[in-house]
Amino acid sequence: MPELPLPTSVPLSWYLLLSAILFALGIAGFLYRRNIITVFMSIELMLNAVNLSFVTFSYKLKQVDGHIFSFFVMVVAAAEAAVGLAIILTVFKNRRTLEVDEIDSMKY
């Protein structure tokens, strides 16, 4: 079996590149999608991408602080999800729609 041209250890920048790709996908979902729940899930994807960057830098600096930051990000994301989904429920109850384009009464 021929030896695969893979490095024995992964460069640190690959993790950061993966984080950047996931963040860009989160931005794309946030801007493309019209369903308010999918928009909200794209925000969670961006938070996850940033968490990966925190843990990667924590490895690089050999400090545990980055893990604690991403732990706090998780806590805030949980609180945000609870309040955000309650707001979505209220919006749906009042307007019978989930399309972000149609929720525009503050525009006029």
């Binding site: 993966l18 790709i21 996931l22 996908l25 989160g26 794309a28 979902g29 493309y32 999608r33 369903n35 729940i37 999918t38 899930m41 794209s42 994807l45």
Partner: peptide, 16 residues
């Protein structure tokens, strides 16, 4: 990355 692309491309929220 594939799951992230799928999240953006799918139109139904449960697939996302």
């Amino acid at each position: 990355v594939v799951c992230g692309i799928n999240l953006v491309v799918q139109t139904h929220p449960i697939s996302s």
